[in-house]
Amino acid sequence: MTKKEMVCVSCPIGCAITVELDDSNEVVSVTGNTCPRGDKYARQECTHPERMLTSTVKLEGGKLPVVSVKSASPIPKEMLFEAMKEINKVTLNAPVKIGDVVIKNILGTGVDIIATNDAK
């Protein structure tokens, strides 16, 4: 049995949550949360934590040298650095529009990297 301490990020209250895990890393109990969202967050955080990824990619022929991008939805936390390597390989040509797909299905996650700004 192991215990994990975490702070819930679902809302500004920031509850201090304690999760108990058994030897096969299954969640046994979640305590310290004050609402169901905390329970959900804690379980996800223990099983497969995910994060949004935002960055920039190089831009040719634009007013600025880079344009901002994000993952269309959260991706597994442990893949953030590998995804950054892929993003840093890309060069786009202006013009770019908000929502343009920059990398389809990055690293097989099923998540696209999309542009978050217009670039002329």
Binding site: M52, T54, S68, K70, I98, T116, N117, D118
Partner: peptide, 10 residues
């Protein structure tokens, strides 16, 4: 929605 800064401004 959870937007980036440029998207919110956009």
């Amino acid at each position: 929605e959870e937007l980036s800064g440029p998207e919110y401004a956009g």
